[in-house]
Nucleic acid binder design. Structure first.
Lengths: 363, 363
DNA sequence: TTGAAAGCGCTAACAG
DNA sequence: CTGTTAGCGCTTTCAA
């Protein structure tokens, strides 16, 4: 990699415009307190020379970087198999770009990388961090807190709090789950099962809680052994293979099941396969609802999947906005889920985005 | 976002270790030319103070940044719907990390962003750029060339060259396509169709060329109107919906088709749906081969998809390595595709990675 | 081998 | 309103 050619400096622009460096600096940074004719001369000089400020020099004195780190800590392949992070990144990118901030991407592979990330953040190279840490026992949040960098989390952090209440943005997992289950109830289903996600992630826990909220209501309004029947909850892990396994176990335990709420679309897909294999019709025999609205999967499945959609890109935008401004614009606060229940499952300044039920053929 | 607390400087470390700033700097940067007892004292001081070099100050004098921009120019949603870029990013990230470089992610939304990206790159904020520009008519490569930053492209650039031969890394799209079609031939299929990708992307063009390579050979060894029959080629766009449309058109034109090579897995999925809908069995009536091995889609489809796999993460690693070193390690050069044909379809220093046929149930 | 000193390009007081 | 000046924290000659 060769060196870049030397670019014009403030000095050069100042000389060309016949003013001092300070004046050029003022113009470049918004132009306040510079009289128009002068400012115009400076702007022309900037354009003629193709001057671009040296960010390193600027950071050195301002101690700001106009850069934000995005930390994605995910040992599993799952991350790269669903568009979740890509969409999130896109939202983040849009917001950062509109505020002239740069996005520094930090991907971690296992714990060895944690120290590296912590060191980077502690090094004061960025103005803040947006962190995705999906696992309840993840040590990263603690390390990041110690680094003393302003941070917003993606998804409700589940770690035990030694650090005050973390700021985060999440989907209304619990409310979305309630909506899904109530939909199944409204279809007249009475033996509604849940295939959970990986329960070391708060999203899985929250969706399970939402399921229980409704089942505990006795929503099925039916016979005994139904509401909250533990046999109807099978632990899985957000993967299609896990979904298959869980669905088999479920059918063995409760062959009379007539509806399944899967913790995500991939799990639902696995369940669909097993149901087909066993000759059960969807939705006639068993109705299936997923979560995520992962496209094109959810549309292309057979039958197309009824599922709970979350606005992932918006989550990303809000995370960035929260970090940059310390607040999200009111029109984007989105504190109104499509469900009457409580919005926040957790303490702390969390921003919870609403979810929407997307009806397709599977339920 | 609050200011970060002030961190220890070289000066502080020097004072603590009782040496000059210059000596500390030497130790921090590898320690060459510093006698052991001294160096050890310095290292201890660094550890005790938790010193981390100020990258801005360092860049200001060295004019290096230890940072690389990754530019993903994609106006379409497709990018975020398949794991292609995520995998590529992971490979890039691994390589950069192992060389202590940072990854600055630049996502562009339409042409308005091009100027911004060009300005950023020209601003000398990064040491190089890794660019994904999928469209033949994309102006971005030209802008980036003008910015004068060392650049490696992901995928064979298709733009008309005013800039010398670009460095790039790509999959062996043409060879992979040949392998796919030859596989269909070996199955005894004689009326082999191709559903193309979006032909403004080189990957689609190259796969079509590979298809033609084999069909032009008269590989079907059969009757008239077969090899290179234009009616067997239907233009599509890499999407499932496009795949459906193309498959319908194909069946209308050539109801006797007995094999389909789809430009990617999503297209194949669309084709599969239409075939099922028309009551045609796969692979008995029509064999189907995809491209990408996009998981979990390719595994979960019905029937599971025979497809051409490319090692996307490795492409990412090689791009980064090429940018950083100007060369890829020999064991990773991967200049041997699983196909005897020519590897490079394009002029210029391109690195072409081999592909592999993954046999599943669809062909 | 080590230290002293001179900036890298910029912003931010402070004067004028 | 504009210019002068003093660094930000680091690397890198150049001497010692």
């Amino acid at each position: 990699m060769s060196e870049a050619v030397s670019r014009p400096t403030l000095e050069a622009v100042a000389a060309r415009a016949g003013v001092s460096r300070a004046t050029v600096s003022r113009v470049v940074n918004g132009g306040y307190g510079v009289r128009e004719p002068l400012a115009e001369r400076v702007r022309r000089a900037v354009a003629e020379l193709g001057y671009v400020p040296n960010q390193a020099a600027r950071s050195l004195v301002t101690r700001r970087h106009d850069a934000v780190a995005v930390v994605i800590a995910e040992p599993e392949t799952r991350v790269f198999t669903d568009p979740f992070f890509a969409l999130q990144l896109r939202g983040i990118s849009k917001e950062l770009t509109s505020h002239d901030n740069q996005l520094v991407l930090l991907l971690t592979e296992g714990r060895d990388d944690h120290a590296r990330v912590a060191r980077y953040l502690a090094g004061g190279h960025v103005d803040g961090a947006l962190v995705f840490s999906l696992h309840l026992d993840d040590p990263l949040p603690g390390l990041i807190h110690d680094a003393g960098v302003p941070t917003v989390f993606g998804g409700r952090p589940g770690w035990r709090d030694r650090t005050g209440t973390p700021v985060y943005v999440d989907s209304d997992n619990r409310g979305g789950a309630r909506t899904a289950v109530r939909h199944l109830v409204s279809l007249g289903r009475t033996r509604i099962a849940h295939l959970t996600g990986a329960l070391d992630q708060t999203s899985a826990v929250d969706r399970l809680d939402g399921y229980r909220d409704v089942m505990g209501e006795g929503a099925g309004a039916g016979g005994p052994g139904r509401a909250g029947d533990p046999a109807l909850v099978v632990e899985s892990d957000f993967t299609p293979a896990g979904g298959e396994r869980a669905m088999r176990e479920l059918l063995d335990r409760r062959p009379d099941v007539d509806a399944v709420f899967a913790a995500n679309d991939l799990t639902a897909l696995g369940a669909l396969r097993v149901l087909r294999e066993r000759g059960l019709r969807v939705p006639e025999d068993v109705a299936v609802v997923g979560f995520d609205d992962m496209l094109p999967l959810a549309e292309q499945s057979d039958p197309p999947l009824t599922t709970v959609r979350q606005d992932i890109e918006r989550m990303g935008r809000l995370m960035a906005r929260l970090l940059l401004h310390g607040t999200a614009a009111p029109d984007d606060a989105g504190q109104a889920p499509d469900d009457a229940g409580p919005v926040a499952d957790a303490p702390g300044p969390g921003l919870i985005l609403p979810t929407t039920l997307i009806r397709r053929a599977s339920a």
